[in-house]
Design a protein around this nucleic acid. Structure first.
Lengths: 231, 231
DNA sequence: AAGTGGTCTAGACCACAAC
DNA sequence: TTGTGGTCTAGACCACTTT
């Protein structure tokens, strides 16, 4: 090791491991050298190796399994669309964990503005949640699903990304995703839930996911976040 | 410390620090006890304290500042609008390395259905780029801007995210963002540029950014990526 | 100069998985 | 039982910020 003078050893260790993977010496799913191997090979302490591997795990490059070893992460196809359409995915990548609190779970029918491409009277599942971080309400989320999807989503972990469930759950193949973000004044209900003044503005993200036939959405989500949390 | 037998010390340390914050003993923005203080107070090693603080920083609860101290995070300003609407941000998260090759920079006028939202004949700046990874063309990007924005974008680094420039550059306040992702067959030109067969499908991501008046877009971008690169 | 977090080592013991 | 990663300590020196 120790080639470069200024760069921290654990960064150099990271680069060494990434190099092994990029050169194809260790394929996705295969086991990487053990921490002990890396210590001896690179002549560094174990904390240094672990710091490198920890960052790589956080970045999704490797997966550590207690008792068995460290493995090259297998990129999964369905993850590909996720960052584009998932709010929680993007925030998580930035290191921000949101906690969900479910306010309401019900069966309803499409009506009013919420038609969103659905026929009037279409049966839908509806979940209303508040997302918090450190106990502070950050976002209000209203999500609507076709009955089939509602079954699947209801059984999934409430902290799991809906986009992830849809993409991964094989219920439907995604054919089209539409997303809209607008800046507007909050409603009274929104002001109450996220505790803001009436002169503060909110970002309202709406997302429609269509199945492969592209006719009607299988999922519609509206997320409201005060602008002060976004700038 | 050492109250609970099975739970790791660094987790207990985390809980202790979170408790300090939740009980209001340390308000957002204020400086937390130093690592040394925590070591002595809790009778644990420094690595344990640092493990706790590292997780708390990753979760967005605290902020460490080299040379000055560790502070309770201020929930404001922590979140960014960018991941929601930036294509390059998302692509980067997919592991797609961003090297841009500009094929075309021109002034043009709005025409055809692709430029929906603009009046026929509106003056626009147009940039056509190919994104490559390891010399292989991965994505085709066509972006259109109002003349004012075109000036700013042209001067910005070509690798910089357009969404970033628009959000940070204060050229306009963003009032509305519309994004669409569809899966379709490639055009002949697309097949030529990214070197794919006609039976392979592509993901076409389109994004419109509207200024505060929400009438006409200030930016329209279309990115085409072969599905096989999204695995 | 003093204090803070950042990096690093050497060594120990524990918890889990596989043989 | 063996080997892996998980946790933890004690101590050292470095880099940055503030006084």
């Amino acid at each position: 090791m120790m080639i470069k003078g200024k760069i921290p050893l654990y960064i150099q260790t990271k680069e060494y491991i990434v190099g092994l993977i990029e050169r194809g010496e260790y394929k996705p799913g295969s086991q990487l050298p053990t921490e002990k191997d890396l210590m001896e090979k690179l002549k560094v302490g174990r904390a240094t190796v672990r710091a490198a591997l920890s960052e790589l795990e956080r970045e999704g490059t490797v997966i550590k399994k207690h008792g068995s070893g460290t493995f090259v992460a297998v990129p999964h196809k369905t993850y590909s669309f996720e960052p584009l359409i998932s709010l929680s995915f993007s925030l998580k990548k930035m290191g921000i964990e949101l906690k969900n609190k479910t306010l309401l779970t019900e069966k309803t029918v499409a009506q009013g503005e919420l038609l969103s491409g659905w026929q009037h009277g279409t049966e839908l599942g509806h979940i209303k949640r508040v997302r918090t971080s450190g106990g502070i309400p950050i976002a209000i989320e209203d999500s609507f699903y076709t009955p089939d999807l509602f079954e699947i989503v209801s059984k999934a972990s409430p902290t799991e990304s809906v986009a992830h469930v849809i993409l991964e759950g094989s219920a439907e193949n995604v054919g089209r995703v539409l997303m809209e973000v607008i800046i507007r004044q909050p409603t009274d209900e929104e002001r109450y839930i996220v505790e803001i003044d009436s002169d503060e503005r909110v970002a309202n993200m709406k997302r429609w996911i269509y199945a492969e036939d592209k006719k009607k959405p299988v999922n519609y989500v509206s997320v409201v976040v005060p602008l002060k949390f976004l700038k």
